[in-house]
Amino acid sequence: MDVYYAYNYAAAGWMILQSIPLLSSPTMMVTMLSPEVRETTPLEAYFSRSLGFAAITLGLLTVLLTGSIPLTTSFSDPSSKLDDPTAPYALPTLVITASYHAIVSFYCYTMWNETGNFGFGISTIVGSSLAAAGVWCVLFAATDGRISRKTGADKRTSGFPFKNVEAEKKRAGKKAL
């Protein structure tokens, strides 16, 4: 579960880090994106700040909905704590944020190939890493394995390309009795 929580905090941190320039200086963002230097229009400033607030909101919702910060209904009710450390919306939130990072990293990659801008390259690397970590969490950290108490092996494994000869011997011995 450590990778799961690390992914949640890293995704939220990356979204908040991206929102800081949008909130603090829309003029700088328009100047970097525009071929000519000019003052921002009120509409551009509005969209820049709205996008910054949306990115912060998505980052905070990622942390809250995935159960990284446990939320209870009451401060004094210990019975409301769940045995499962993840929230009920953890897997859908994880899938959505991993998809978001994959789409954004693909967009940044295409822009990096077109413009050669260093910022798009960094965004491609960070976004791809977050998308890969999110997919890893969806595949491997979303469910607890069914570990056998006797052998310590995962019960969901199959012996497809290789046969488990020892298990077959034990089964044959039980059938003979």
Rank of each mutant, 00 (worst) to 15 (best):
Y7I: 10
Y7M: 06
N8K: 13
A11H: 06
A11D: 01
A11R: 05
A12V: 06
G13T: 00
W14M: 12
W14A: 12
L23N: 05
S24I: 15
S25L: 03
S25E: 05
T27F: 13
T27S: 13
V30W: 07
S34T: 08
S34V: 08
P35Q: 01
P35Y: 02
P35G: 02
V37D: 12
R38D: 02
R38V: 02
E39L: 11
T40W: 08
T41Q: 06
E44H: 09
Y46D: 12
S48T: 12
S50F: 14
F53M: 13
A55G: 08
I56Y: 03
T57W: 15
L60W: 08
L60Y: 07
T62A: 02
T62L: 02
L65V: 05
G67M: 01
S68E: 01
I69F: 09
L71H: 06
F75T: 12
D77V: 04
P78E: 03
L82A: 15
L82C: 15
D84A: 10
P85Y: 08
P88N: 02
Y89E: 08
T93D: 00
T93S: 01
V95S: 02
V95C: 03
T97Q: 04
A98M: 01
Y100T: 04
Y100N: 02
H101R: 12
H101Y: 10
V104W: 14
S105T: 04
S105L: 03
Y107G: 09
Y107F: 11
C108N: 07
Y109K: 06
T110Y: 06
M111T: 06
N113E: 06
N113H: 11
T115E: 01
G116N: 00
N117E: 03
F118N: 11
G119D: 03
G121K: 09
I122R: 08
I122C: 06
S123D: 10
S123P: 06
I125L: 10
I125F: 07
S128I: 07
L130W: 05
A131M: 04
A131K: 00
A132W: 08
A133V: 09
G134N: 00
W136P: 07
W136S: 10
C137A: 07
C137H: 02
L139S: 02
T143M: 13
D144Q: 14
G145N: 13
R146H: 13
R146T: 14
I147A: 05
I147F: 08
I147W: 10
S148R: 05
R149N: 14
R149P: 13
G152H: 04
F160S: 09
F160M: 10
P161L: 01
P161V: 00
K163Q: 10
K163I: 05
V165E: 07
A167L: 13
E168K: 14
E168M: 13
K170C: 05
R171Y: 15
R171M: 15
R171Q: 14
K174W: 04
L177V: 12
L177Q: 11
